[in-house]
Design a protein around this nucleic acid. Sequence first.
DNA 1: TTGTATGCGTTATCAG
DNA 2: CTGATAACGCATACAA
Lengths: 350, 350
Amino acid sequence: MTQKKNITFDDIAQYTHFSKTTISRYFNNPDSLTLENQQIISDALVKLNYKENKVARILANGKTEFVGILIPNLYLHYYSEMLNQILATYETYGYKFLVFIGHENAETERQYIQELLAYKIEGLIVLSHTLSSRELADLQIPIVTIEREDQYVCSINTDNYMGAIQATSLLARHNCDILIHINTPTADNIPAYGRIQGFMDFCKENNIKNRIFCHKTENTYDSSLQYLKDILEELETTYTGMRKGIFVSNDTHANILLNLIVRKYGRLPDDYYIIGFDDSPVAREAVIPISTIGQQIDRIANEAVSLLVSQMNERKKRKPVPLKEPIHKTITPILIRRETTEKEDLPENR
Amino acid sequence: MTQKKNITFDDIAQYTHFSKTTISRYFNNPDSLTLENQQIISDALVKLNYKENKVARILANGKTEFVGILIPNLYLHYYSEMLNQILATYETYGYKFLVFIGHENAETERQYIQELLAYKIEGLIVLSHTLSSRELADLQIPIVTIEREDQYVCSINTDNYMGAIQATSLLARHNCDILIHINTPTADNIPAYGRIQGFMDFCKENNIKNRIFCHKTENTYDSSLQYLKDILEELETTYTGMRKGIFVSNDTHANILLNLIVRKYGRLPDDYYIIGFDDSPVAREAVIPISTIGQQIDRIANEAVSLLVSQMNERKKRKPVPLKEPIHKTITPILIRRETTEKEDLPENR
DNA sequence: TTGTATGCGTTATCAG
DNA sequence: CTGATAACGCATACAA
């Protein structure tokens, strides 16, 4: 006994002897009906098994409540957790998200954006790096980017510089003889460059001997492994006997380095101090839990959506005042101390 | 100099002196126009900077090309990778995905489903475990589930049983004195139960001494850590000197166990053989790369969407023939041998 | 508090 | 090959 077809306001109107408009008001402005009539309609809805149709509503009022998300991948925990947190804001703001994975291909991403525009998204959150903020700004819709080049659009970023200072100063406090920073080539107009700058500035200001490794790697595990093997060898030969404080630009690489050391010595020798960045699960789950700079992904996601929502709301006003300047907001990361820097937590004590 | 408003077919029609209908045909059935006229319209589109509006199209033809996804979380790599692969099928089928994270809360999930229905999704992919397949089937829309209870709906699952056989037989081939299986309580109507069943059956058939640990843990790292610590202690005391082959039900737990052992001995002793399940990144990135049963997430995702698409297509026919019985498809996992079972790959050789 | 008429931007039906 | 007209389901001025 399947339903004949979709129930519409017309059907309800007929059934209740009200007009379509009244039915519509029941949903959008129920207080304008008598309690009695609200009840009548309410009963009719269940009786007829009405299912609302938001597509029709969109066409009529222009508000899709769609937000587009452009994200490079979900492989890195950082991105999947960010997506998770963004999606969770549905509870707060009610916006639905259309997600596209860009895979770092500019043409594909442009095509995705067109598709999103066709669905009349009200705003766009961009985590991909492929398209310039100039090009994004030309889209003429509210946009917020996260941790990427952001000159012409609003953005939320981690305070990478401060994170680097925290990491470096922690290593310094442990009286390391030399501070090492391991990274990969990073443009100086993206937030992550702060990790390098912060390290450099701190070492310079405090007159600490230091060294930066910054070579290109493929984006694969094997390539990273080889990169870190080479670095470890260099460290072992050049800085023998010195206490080495190593600030690695991300937890995945920190973990690889740690594993290489542990496999060589069966433990983390006293002359190695390591700290990563991101607070990925891999840092906590490492053979020796890795100290790290924790990005507050939940806060970043919430601020991003909040900033986007305020722009979208502005647009709905009678006389929208577009932002003169893009707003850039920064979230301070959190130092998380684990065993790779706090040597008193020995395995035996656990 | 911003555009006055959205350009519609009407504007294009006026501009080109065609009718709305012809403009519509240009998009949906261009061959029915002369090449000449196609060109005229095409030129007008760029001149007027037309942006298509799929919401209006949906309302007119009823095809949203939306598919809903209900997923428990994105914290586990398994889920985020599955989502990634599902989203990637956009390239093949063109369906857009509306994603909701259920967080294992039945009421929330029901509410999400209502929202999805309001957006007239054409089908639904469910990875959450909270709602029974009975309840899902009542939704009366095409549904495919992945790795969960699936009695009344179509599903794609990993062949967990076969995976367990592969894992267990690999351990057996290494002449282990005792085979251990570590798991958590699992209902026997969900696919993952096959991991336990396969282990038991293989041991029984081959008359191998074995033991199963299957206690409840919180879903936290610390709780898992404690669980595995207890197990390790038990193994060390009860099976001293025996060669232990351990099949852990997932890579995260396998990694925790491995780390406990490595921290104790500085290496993986010869009497331990370990294999996990899932092929998560953590298995490859472990201090000693962990052998595992690799779920073919890409294939599962593709089969799931493909199965869903075929149902959705059937629905669009004049005389749809609904499935008499739900279709269940199974994907065989792949044995991935790494160092925790192939001891000849010693650290020194790498 | 309720109803009428019209619009949202496209597709479908039926002519020509 | 092209066009007029009626859906699609709801929202919103404007009236009453």
